Amino acid sequence: MATAPGAVILADDFGDQLDTANAEHLAARLRASAGQLWLSTRRPEVARAFEPEELVRLTRRGGVRAWHRLERPADRRAIRAMRQLHTQLLPALTSPTVAITEGPHDLVVYGTVDRQRLPGAAPLSAVGVRLVAAGTGQDGGIGEIPVVADLARSLGFRVIALIDRDKAEEQTIKQLEASCHVVVRLPPKTAIEGALLAGADIAAIRAASATLTAFLNQDPAEGVPDTKVVDAVKHSLHKKSLHEPFLDALVEETQTPPPMIVDVLDHVATAASTSYSGPAIIDIPAVAPPGVAVPS
């Protein structure tokens, strides 16, 4: 029937009973052969069969229903943003809120700790939040968050930005405020590696660092004075992209997820609510090593 001239096809919950590949394949075949095609779906694979401007996302927040449709990119910024649609936003299709990190390193740290908190605390998915990155490689960074955030908002997502505070400029912060509902930022001069290590004692950091010899020729903390261990490990994590194995080893040593990362996730969960009435910029407080006071 799809090949009949001018055929109009309507289907509800399309792809629910199909595997990933067949859902996308059948949607693409129907799109190519039907005169007009209307599909409702919860499957990002089905949406991948269509051009971005052909997608309509339906939302309901606080009892208010709305629809959202993308426009064809009209400038280079929009083209750059659209590249994130399939890799970042379509997988979040059914989540009301996206929390956008600066890049893959931040994403893997927040995502890993979010899983490690179980069963003691609920993951972000319990409050409808999907963690995504502003880029999948060298194309990320704080400056890319507004680009992805604008695209997400045009699709009806509530948008929260998770940013470092190592080199953010005031102009970038203003752009983030304009593009995001809420911005959660780490303490001054703190990147994701510093947040990962915050609150851990030197012995635990050394023990976790020693496990990195499975990936490196030398332990980053070996032969380094205690006063410089944190900086040495932060540098190695950033340069060698070994956040995952180090985080696993650190949690095994401390038996608790990194407290600053947990604090960020807790604030994200709170800010995801449509009834949230707190500040638009949430500053995460510093966490001192055991026995060291944080300056007020």
Rank of each mutant, 00 (worst) to 15 (best):
V108I: 14
R130F: 07
D106N: 06
L107S: 00
L124C: 14
A122S: 15
E53L: 01
V108Q: 08
V109R: 09
R130S: 13
P44R: 03
R60E: 13
R130N: 05
R48Q: 12
L93E: 06
L37I: 04
H105M: 05
A78M: 13
P119M: 05
R80L: 12
R83A: 11
L58N: 02
R57M: 01
T101S: 14
R117S: 02
Y110L: 15
L89S: 06
L37K: 11
Q116S: 07
E102W: 08
D75F: 08
R57G: 02
E51Y: 04
R43S: 15
R83Y: 02
Q36S: 13
R60P: 00
L90W: 11
P104F: 00
R72E: 06
W38Q: 00
R72L: 08
L39P: 11
T59F: 00
Q36F: 09
S40I: 00
L55A: 03
W67D: 01
T101R: 07
T112N: 07
Q84M: 13
T59E: 01
R61T: 09
H68F: 12
A81Q: 05
L85M: 06
A74I: 09
L107H: 05
G103K: 05
D75T: 04
Q36K: 12
T112D: 12
Q88G: 04
R65N: 10
Y110M: 12
A122H: 13
A122Q: 14
Q84T: 04
R83N: 03
V46L: 11
R69C: 06
W67L: 01
T97D: 08
E45S: 15
H86V: 14
L55R: 06
R130L: 04
Y110V: 08
S95Q: 13
G103F: 04
A126W: 06
P96R: 07
A122G: 03
R115E: 13
R61D: 10
M82C: 10
R83W: 03
W38M: 02
L70N: 05
A121E: 15
A122E: 14
L107N: 00
D75R: 07
R69L: 00
E102V: 03
A99V: 12
R61W: 08
A66G: 15
G63Y: 06
R77C: 00
T94L: 14
T87G: 06
I100T: 03
R65W: 07
L85G: 02
L55G: 01
Q116Y: 13
V129H: 08
V108H: 02
R48H: 08
A78S: 14
A121T: 11
V129N: 09
P123E: 05
R42P: 00
P91A: 09
G63M: 08
P119D: 03
E54R: 10
Q84H: 12
L37W: 09
R83E: 06
V108N: 01
L55H: 04
G111L: 05
G128V: 02
G111F: 09
R65P: 01
A122F: 11
A81P: 13
S95W: 08
T101K: 10
G63A: 07
L107R: 04
P73I: 02
E54D: 12
L89R: 11
V129R: 08
D75E: 06
T97M: 10
L93V: 03
T101I: 03
P119G: 06
H86C: 01
Q116V: 01
S95E: 08
P123Y: 08
